[in-house]
């Protein structure tokens, strides 16, 4: 069993209806697969922030164990105890 904690921020938390969720997987799961599962489970507004024309939105920001994930790393297989942080498009200072 792989247990992963996901934290949602900004409007993603609003649309997910939650600030965080624990996900459990029995089979090998990648970051991209996990996003697909969330998009199925959560309301459409959440999906609209995560996907753009059926591809993972270039504006979604994913940190895996506090490390910024680039698009080519979205097929990283999640490991037990991993922690993810998800942000919609925000930037500035």
């Amino acid at each position: 069993m792989t247990t992963v904690k996901v934290r949602f921020f900004n409007l993603l938390a609003v649309h997910a209806g939650n600030k965080s969720r624990i996900f459990e997987f029995t089979e090998e799961t990648t970051v991209a697969q996990m996003l697909a599962q969330m998009a199925n489970e959560f309301p459409p507004a959440f999906r609209d922030m995560v996907y753009q024309q059926d591809k993972i939105s270039p504006h979604l920001r994913i940190f895996l164990n506090e490390r910024l994930l680039y698009e080519k790393e979205f097929d990283t297989v999640l490991e037990d105890g991993d922690s993810l942080m998800l942000f919609p498009a925000i930037a500035g200072g």
Partner: peptide
């Protein structure tokens, strides 16, 4: 949408993992 909702205060969380 994200900036309108929280303004620059919404950046506090983002800056942690960065």
């Amino acid at each position: 949408p994200g900036i309108q909702k929280y303004g620059t205060s919404g950046l506090v969380a983002l800056m942690q993992p960065i």
